[in-house]
Amino acid sequence: MSFRELNNIQLDALKEISNIGMGHAATALSQMIGQTVRLRVPHVTITEISQVPEHLGGAENLMVGITLQILGDARGSIMLLFPQESAHRLLCSLLGHQGKTLIMNEMAVSALKEVGNILASAYLSALGRLLNKTLIPSVPLLAYDMAGAVVDYVLIELSQSSDLALMVETNFVGEPGEDLAIKGHFFLMPDPTTLDIFLSEVGGVHV
């Protein structure tokens, strides 16, 4: 199935799948940093591959990207992106005071990969239960660089079978009025056959 053929009901189904998955991921993150993390309803967008960096606020924005492969009964990639200020705040919560700016030492890389691992695992296990599939995250990989450079890795993989990308985007936010302000983008990029599996399981079957 091509992404272009998805209708509104199917997009809603994907959004709902993601909401549930992200709920679990947000809980995991809250426990990890000892502060409440909420999530904003995800946007599900189907976009030309060339437009993805624009959706991230510009190709040259500095971001920390953590990527994992989805293995098991379905295939695809997960990409977590944190703007550098958010990655810095996240590290301050996890490791204590970190200085004024983001310094990507071994400890920081390892801590952020672990965040990626926990979020992806929580997300995939919730998703897997819902779909009755076994979904396993691979070892996380990390890059700290321009947004465009960080995401083109995933886009390249997608572009082998499609000119379009399906982005399920979620933003992490704190309690209302609280100054947590850790923003993140979470992208689920199922390959086209996996998308079929997702949709047939949630009932948003082809019309």
Partner: peptide
């Protein structure tokens, strides 16, 4: 005098 610009190349 146009300057062409490609931003944020990774593996591309």
């Amino acid at each position: 005098p146009v300057v062409l610009k490609a931003s944020g190349l990774g593996s591309c």
